[in-house]
Design a protein around this nucleic acid. Structure first.
Length: 750
DNA sequence: TCTACATGTCATCTA
DNA sequence: GATAGATGACATGTA
């Protein structure tokens, strides 16, 4: 009881402090009793369902399962776990991964957790609730919101250490009560991780560790997670939903406290707290700890000395960094492309594995890019550490290198790349005029961004998702979908259609009227149920064979669709006005065929549609037909012809699209090839410049003045003259010429 | 129930 | 003007 009061007091004091910091005045005494809901609504809005923070539902936690809150091993366990997690977190940036741990829901009949750890010894009476809580819905939310935990848990083997199973009946009853409340309120399993993690924080609760400990913060509920850290469904990238000023966390903490009061004092304001639940509430004060959810991202990157109240600034930094990602991903792409020849392992290492280690001293920028790398899969830690000399081509936005590297092989950066420091100035002066970057004009960065991405997508084995993302980005203006699943060879070429047509028609010529038509190159409606004398087909209209077969097959045996692979999935039957009890042959009849049958039209629809006008009129004259019959026949003919026309039209359209797709692919291949050649040229150019600079040093080092003393590199420099001669000029003059040379490209850009 | 896709149909235009 | 074909737009069935 004393412990509970202590935690409540401390916790509420911290809540109050936090609320005061965000400008919310809270009279705790007013709301401690029966007015808890209003306070909660003040803080969280009218619906309490937004923050389901069942911190006390510990037994459903992934790693807390099996540990009773009162267990004396709990502190040691959490401490060890936290420390281990922190140590493990030092060398990597934890990107949330979608993962559902199925073993969570399994429980052996003895009441202990089985699955990966059958030794867990929490004896609980009911297991059904666990399944409810970890049902599909919660499982999904877990995968979405608690991704950051799974890795830790997995690293730890998800081991719940054996605990003393000294649960009393009150313990079990209380847990069940709280648990059911959580279930009623829609609590997810992630809630329970939080309580356990808060317990961890309590063990080692120090203000200066606020930031560092916050990597163990998440889990207080999907709503809180959703408010603080949104996870991109495609990329898995986590980003803050809003800039935290402590408000959300304060509200969360207060909600936790309120829930604690509700849960532990369900009998009214005068009821005493059960003594044996005090341990359950140990986590409460820590709820008021400064927010740390965002430090899932930051924890490996920030030092533990930062004040928890600097989090807003950290958030702002993080947000600004996130905004930079979109720009810098392309840069990373270029780095990869230009710094690694084809086949280079670095070039193929596009995807950052979730466990890819990142140095502890990695910058915040890098960390944020890491999250993004799951999306673009271009970022790699190795890229950031590329030698400056090899990454000089395109690093316009490099966070640390941009200031020291010129994006071209221009004269100024030559000195920085190849010359010793004392010769930098000289190199600038001498190499500049004579070694203008011959490809500088070609290296339009915007163009290369596109080329690089497309090249990577096509040539370097991007996965389909990445490639499609890239294609969408660069093909968005084309209005064409390049992701057609149709077989271009079988569809687009008339030869293929013709061959399939001929083979199919010859095989079916003796079996149906439509086959007879196809022999004549005609198309049209066909019906297996309607026999047609072979001698009546002589007047078939000569349609294009390749289209004819295409059209006719849609009404024939679906097995024949195998002749056209792209039509294998087409099995539509539009005889939808048929009764279910109709014969199989009736099912293959079209509506017009049914109409014709109903109107007792004395000849087939194939003839109606495909006969030439003269023969068609002659046919009509042979029969005494009513106006309704004549009208239907004309409609059938019109619709039938139009249907074939539509099919031909669509096929042509598809052919056009596929041809365009092939053209685009050819052009992309050409682009990639030209790009590779360009890279080779740049590489050879760099080698030549290196040679020039080494020769410069050699020549300059051998020069002697009239006294036999070497010239000082700080006072003199060599300059190549236009006629091929080399002049020794004062350094100041060389500097002026270098500056003049630098201004020219800038003016040109303007 | 919604969506994507294939197909049929109509209206309109052109040759 | 009749006819056939082309094509956009819409409807409908199916997965």
């Amino acid at each position: 009881m004393l412990s509970l009061k202590k935690y409540l007091t401390e916790g509420l004091l911290q809540f109050t402090i936090l609320l005061s910091l965000i400008g919310v005045r809270v009279d705790v005494d007013t709301y401690l009793t029966s007015q808890l809901p209003p306070l909660r609504e003040i803080i969280l809005g009218p619906s309490s369902a937004y923050t389901q923070t069942q911190f006390h539902n510990l037994r459903n936690t992934l790693d807390g399962y099996g540990i009773h809150p009162k267990s004396i091993d709990l502190d040691n366990y959490f401490t060890a776990r936290r420390l281990l997690s922190q140590v493990r977190a030092l060398d990597r940036f934890q990107v949330p991964t979608t993962e559902v741990n199925a073993w969570l829901v399994h429980r052996d009949p003895e009441g202990s957790v089985s699955g990966s750890q059958p030794s867990s010894g929490l004896a609980l009476e009911s297991s059904s609730g666990l399944q409810d809580v970890t049902g599909p819905d919660n499982g999904v939310r877990e995968s979405e919101t608690e991704q950051g935990f799974s890795e830790d848990l997995e690293d730890l083997g998800a081991v719940a250490p054996p605990v003393s199973g000294d649960l009393t009946k009150e313990d079990i009853d209380l847990i069940d009560i709280l648990w059911r409340q959580d279930i009623d309120l829609g609590a997810g399993r992630e809630i329970f991780d939080y309580s356990h993690r808060q317990k961890e924080q309590d063990v080692d609760k120090e203000p200066q560790d606020g930031v560092e400990q916050e990597d163990t913060w998440p889990g207080e509920g999907e709503e809180v997670l959703a408010r603080n850290l949104l996870v991109d469904g495609e990329t898995g990238e986590s980003f803050p939903a809003q800039v935290p000023g402590g408000e959300n966390q304060t509200a969360l903490s207060l909600e936790l406290c309120l829930r604690l009061l509700e849960s532990t004092c369900p009998f009214g304001e005068n009821a005493e707290f059960p003594a044996d639940i005090s341990s359950l509430t140990e986590a409460v004060p820590s709820e008021s700890e400064p927010p740390g959810l965002q430090n899932n991202l930051l924890s490996p990157l920030l030092t533990g000395t930062e004040s928890p109240f600097d989090l807003e600034q950290q958030w702002q930094d993080l947000m600004s960094i996130m905004e930079m990602q979109a720009m810098e991903v392309n840069t990373s792409t270029n780095e990869i492309l230009y710094n690694n020849p084809p086949g280079d392992p670095l070039s193929t290492n596009y995807s950052l594995a979730p466990n890819t280690p990142i140095n502890q001293n990695v910058s915040l920028h890098q960390a944020s890019l890491g999250g993004c790398s799951q999306d673009f899969s271009l970022f790699s830690p190795e890229v950031e550490s590329l030698p400056a000399a090899s990454s000089s081509t395109l690093l316009p936005l490099g966070p640390s290198n941009s200031t020291s590297l010129n994006p071209t092989f221009g004269p100024t950066n030559l000195s920085g790349l190849f010359f010793p420091p004392q010769l930098n100035g000289t190199a600038n002066d001498t190499a500049g005029p004579e070694l203008p970057d011959p490809l500088g004009g070609l290296l339009d960065e915007a163009m290369l961004d596109e080329i690089s991405l497309m090249d990577l997508a096509i040539e370097e084995g991007f996965n389909s998702v990445q490639a499609s993302q890239l294609k969408e980005e660069f093909d968005s203006d084309s209005g064409l979908s390049l992701d057609s699943s149709h077989s271009p060879s079988s569809l687009s070429s008339s030869e293929g259609s013709s061959s399939s047509s001929s083979s199919s028609s010859s095989s079916s010529a003796s079996s149906s009227a439509s086959s007879s038509f196809s022999e004549e190159g005609a198309v049209g409606y066909s019906s297996d149920s309607e026999t047609l004398d072979l001698e009546e087909v002589e007047g078939a209209v000569g349609y294009q064979p390749e289209y004819s077969k295409f059209c006719r097959m849609s009404y024939q045996d679906p097995s024949q669709l195998s002749c056209l692979p792209y039509l294998e999935h087409v099995g539509h039957n539009h005889t939808y006005n048929m009764a279910p009890s109709a014969l199989d042959s009736d099912k293959q009849m079209s509506r017009d065929e049914h109409r014709a049958r109903a109107m007792k039209i004395p000849f087939t629809n194939d003839k109606i549609i495909n006969l030439p006008v003269e023969e068609f009129n002659e046919l009509l004259s042979k029969y005494q037909l009513s106006e309704a019959q004549l009208s239907l026949i004309r409609d059938i003919r019109r619709r039938g012809k139009n249907k074939m026309a539509a099919q031909n039209c669509r096929k042509r359209k598809l052919d056009t699209i596929l041809n365009l797709k092939r053209d685009v692919e050819d052009l992309q291949r050409d682009k990639a090839r030209l790009l590779r050649e360009k890279v080779e040229f740049l590489r050879s150019l760099r080698q030549m410049k290196q040679k020039v600079q080494s020769l410069y040093q050699e020549v300059f080092g051998r020069l002697r003045d009239e006294n036999g003393q070497p010239y000082s590199p700080s006072q003199y420099a060599l300059q190549y003259a236009g006629d091929g001669s080399v002049l020794l000029i004062p350094r100041t003059l060389a500097d002026q010429q270098a500056r003049r040379q630098e201004r020219k490209p800038k003016d040109r850009r303007k």
